Amino acid sequence: MIPQPWMYDVTVVLTSLLVYPSGLKVYGQEKVPRTGRVIVAGNHVGNMDPFVITIAAKRRLRFMAKKELFGNPLFKWYMLNVGNIPVDRQSKNDISSIRTCIKALEEEEGLGIFPQGTRGGSQVMGGVSLIALKAKAPIVPVYVQKKGKWIVRFGDPIEPQGTVPELTHKFTEALENLKQL
């Protein structure tokens, strides 16, 4: 299913009504390229993270989302229409999701990933690095926290170079540095 831009835009407007009253402070938004392939990857603290990151980035992003969210036919229709990509977190190598992500990036789209695999996860998985290297897409690290208001920090883009473990290590360090700010 081809994502529907109007549906994405409506979602951003509606979720903004939830995010802005709480407050939103964004640092480094200029580090997210306006156009072209990019992966925005960060920590995952809550269900609102994709919306908060999208609003803060001011850039259309297609997020990887656990396949369980696509179980209900109506929600599946919504998720696909806003451009989300289902991923099987139980599979070590969900090749279909990886191919879909690479194709989206090759079409110069933006991709959102939570490389820790789950809300509150502590270990960064190598999938973000694999996708970045295959698609030749920079990774912009992002750290989200909710302290009364939403705080979003974007880091410097990380070029897709080296091996999967090397790039994963670079990304993990960048995310940890953003957490310390």
Rank of each mutant, 00 (worst) to 15 (best):
I53K: 02
R34D: 11
L14K: 10
N81S: 15
W77N: 06
R62N: 14
D88N: 15
P115F: 13
I85Y: 15
E108W: 12
S129I: 06
L133Y: 09
F114L: 10
V52L: 01
Q145F: 08
D88M: 09
V152H: 05
G23S: 00
G112R: 05
V13L: 15
L18S: 10
T15H: 03
I39D: 05
G126V: 11
Y143A: 03
P141T: 07
V124L: 15
R34Q: 13
V82K: 07
D88A: 08
L17Q: 13
S16H: 05
S22Y: 14
K92Q: 15
N47Y: 11
D156G: 03
I53G: 04
S91K: 15
M64R: 10
L74S: 12
Q90D: 13
F114T: 05
S22E: 06
S122A: 14
H44T: 03
I85H: 12
L133A: 07
N43I: 03
S129G: 08
P141R: 05
T54L: 05
I85T: 14
L133V: 07
S129Y: 05
K76Y: 13
V128S: 09
M79R: 02
P33Y: 11
K67D: 12
K149P: 07
R34Y: 13
Y143M: 01
H44Q: 00
R153L: 03
G23W: 00
Q123E: 13
S22K: 12
V82L: 02
S16A: 14
V144D: 03
S129F: 05
M79S: 10
K25I: 12
P141I: 09
R99S: 04
V142Y: 04
G23H: 02
C101I: 12
F51R: 00
I98Q: 06
G36V: 03
Y78K: 03
R59M: 00
R37Y: 08
K149M: 03
G155W: 02
G112L: 08
T54N: 01
G42P: 01
A132H: 07
V140R: 04
N72K: 02
K25Q: 11
I55V: 04
L24M: 04
P138F: 11
L133M: 08
K58V: 01
P115H: 09
K134G: 08
F154I: 00
I53P: 01
E108H: 10
R60C: 15
D156Y: 02
Q123G: 06
T15S: 08
R119T: 03
P73R: 05
T54A: 06
I55Y: 02
M48T: 00
F70S: 04
G83T: 11
M48W: 00
K67Y: 10
N47K: 06
A57N: 04
G121Y: 11
G148Q: 12
L80D: 06
V140L: 06
Q29D: 03
L133D: 06
T100G: 11
A132S: 15
